[in-house]
Amino acid sequence: MRFILLTVGAIALIGCRQDMHDQPRYRLNSASDFWSDGRAARPAVKGTVARGMLKTDAGLYTGKINGRDVLEFPFPITKEVLARGKDRFAIYCTPCHGLTGHGDGMIVTRGLKNPPSYHSEALREAAPGHIFDVITNGSGSMMSYGARIPVKDRWAIVAYIRVLQQSQNVKLAQLTTEEVEKVKASERPAAPEKKAAKKGGSH
């Protein structure tokens, strides 16, 4: 009798342990007291290349070939790529650059300086590789977004920036007669875009 009670009691006590719950293994971003930097995640040894991650395509990964900004996109820009670019732009770029790229994002209302507008002559002329490089490595007070945005998404953003630049710099002569009629019909041609920009700034 006494033996049964002890066994049941012991089993009950074992049931209270959390060994399975808190397993002695590292999870992503866990702390470790084994390594001097306190991190369980180890930086790759210099020169290590993960399978399928050999970045031989310099144009794709750096936006530069032989130190020069690439002038063409490394893959065809389809409607899907533009949609993806718009989506990613809204997440990562609008807080500072605003929805239309005028440099009037939310941060301006918080006391930060306006980032440069995309609609300057210099940036309209800039090579796609240059814009890609700025996103990847940062520029001025803009931090690098290379670690945050995967490479193809960065190119999609570059493509969408081109769309934005185009949207703010259309000559009347480039429009079809129908579109010209539309423009004439509305008193303020740029109204919808302006509205969008304001929305971005009022966050």
């Binding site: 971003n29 941060i107 918080r110 006391g111 930060l112 007070s141 803009m142 931090m143 690098s144």
Partner: peptide
Amino acid sequence: MPATETCMSCHSMI
């Protein structure tokens, strides 16, 4: 989890 870089994207300036 955001790297410190993400925080500093704004908080290096504000």
